[in-house]
Design a protein around this nucleic acid. Sequence first.
DNA 1: AAAATAGTGTCTTTTAGACAATATGCG
DNA 2: CGCATATTGTCTAAAAGACACTATTTT
Lengths: 318, 318
Amino acid sequence: MYPCSVTNTSYSSSDYPDFAVTVDLLVFSVINKTLRILLIQRDEDPFRYSWALPGGFVHEEENLESAAWRELAEETGIANKVGHLEQLRTYGDAGRDPRMRVVSVAYFAAEYDLPEPQGGGDAKYAEHVPIVEIPNKSIKLAFDHRKILTDAVERLRNKISYTPLATQFCPEEFTIAQLRSTYDIIWRDTEKYLAGAKEHDDLRGPASKPFELKSARPHSFQPVAAPVALHLVTQPLKSEAPLAEKTSLSYLMQNEETSYAKLDPGNFQRSVLQVDGFLEPTGKKSSPSTSGGRPAELFTVGNLDQLSPPIRPKKPSK
Amino acid sequence: MYPCSVTNTSYSSSDYPDFAVTVDLLVFSVINKTLRILLIQRDEDPFRYSWALPGGFVHEEENLESAAWRELAEETGIANKVGHLEQLRTYGDAGRDPRMRVVSVAYFAAEYDLPEPQGGGDAKYAEHVPIVEIPNKSIKLAFDHRKILTDAVERLRNKISYTPLATQFCPEEFTIAQLRSTYDIIWRDTEKYLAGAKEHDDLRGPASKPFELKSARPHSFQPVAAPVALHLVTQPLKSEAPLAEKTSLSYLMQNEETSYAKLDPGNFQRSVLQVDGFLEPTGKKSSPSTSGGRPAELFTVGNLDQLSPPIRPKKPSK
DNA sequence: AAAATAGTGTCTTTTAGACAATATGCG
DNA sequence: CGCATATTGTCTAAAAGACACTATTTT
């Protein structure tokens, strides 16, 4: 029942405890052939200098999803509710915030062509961090954000197989090869993240060790002084190197470009075209990149929400 | 970030609004060859005499999941955290409770062999309602509970295909035929519910029409005076008619037992045994039911959490 | 022409489904 | 035995996968 042992129409404050409610954002993107998550660096205790998911309090009279969109705009400069945003899960364990009782609703976003991360106005740094680096380099994440991130990575990995979610990491118009590359990258990086998370994740509670300043700053930052500038999200295709060489990890990804199970181009083509309503042809053709090759057809995503049959990762050759 | 434009270690109450946090329960069960959901009938405004999901406030210092287990025990008499309980989704729209701002975390439970529903102690009726009746007979659901139920039904339908969830509706030891019947019932009833929800669901907001007392009481009730009696959950197999003839709908189900796409016994057998670790043989055999037949092997569920390949519903013959 | 990428054809292997056949209990 | 249900076998159709081949561009 709703009102628990209450018989009058409105509650008195003694009947239930007060909670603070926040939204946390998991902003995924594929930049420079790497699956990334937007993290900010905290400049306040607790967890000062740790990384954390962006987020903030839900306002009074504000819907949860509205709050998530608002925070997304504030943190990424995305206007007008473009891209994909869905509720992931709610985290509300009693001890998860040392200061007070906070219930946090996590939202999951998949975005293309994000502008440079913006600090929220305060002295705060933000970065699109490659997810594969998070278990390895033992980046500290504040609160229970590591658990939240792992849940989100699992969800992402599952969801691209049976929904058109992967298209959200591509531009408005894209080629089948771009889409295939997105699948390759997400399957590769999520698999690696989850493998790393499994071993590295000693399942200690959220506030485990004292934060280490040194390891909390393994990347190069772009402190941004200006307040949130709303980059509008229209750029030409093949904007395939916005953050290149900026993070210290990009080169690493290149070196590790050893073999991982990529999808077969021919079979992938058939798979996606076979799902009726998944891809809508535009009639246009892409211009081949610098290295030449036949121009590819451009597609937009249809209005389907379930792919059947699903797009599956290639089995690891036994 | 967590603290939003707050620089000191603890928050002052002006920085964020207060919310009440509740858990709502979606207790599914398969009783008398029918998929059912536990609903209570409200005896207070708002939505007096409407049906609602059971639930209640989260206590201070209590984890969300603990609150859900506590409420489940209170509402169903289930002790000791048996069965399946997982978080579904959080509902927190600003206007969803007319009295105050309530954020409600919905939890999804799949239970076998539930005792008769117990009122929470107050004058409150509870019943395991067949889900197929909810759209048809236009049973009034309070708040946004119809939306929550529909989300849960979709989740249930999806989840039995790629997890061992369906086994949670069976006894500890079960035959493959029992499991197959569970799949048949869930696929049949969820399909029917969702079809009905699609048309009946004029997408008006939560508080649509005034509640009608007559249609809010289409079933026969079992008012239970005693406080929660903790039925322990061990009964022999084939307890296949606990609520028989009690609800006014049981016979309807029998009559409507016209053809729906049932799974092929032979192929189903192979499907489930093929998934390694799904079913664990016990060595024991069931005694054939009254109608005779070869005794079947008894199985328990393994400790797998993903079925691959998934168990799929039979395609409707085109 | 050579290289590179897009897209198609074809063959093989695997999986799913229909349905017959056999097994094992009961009255 | 005859009935009912469980379990296995067999054949067929559909899907998935490997990989060769054709197409269209750039240098």
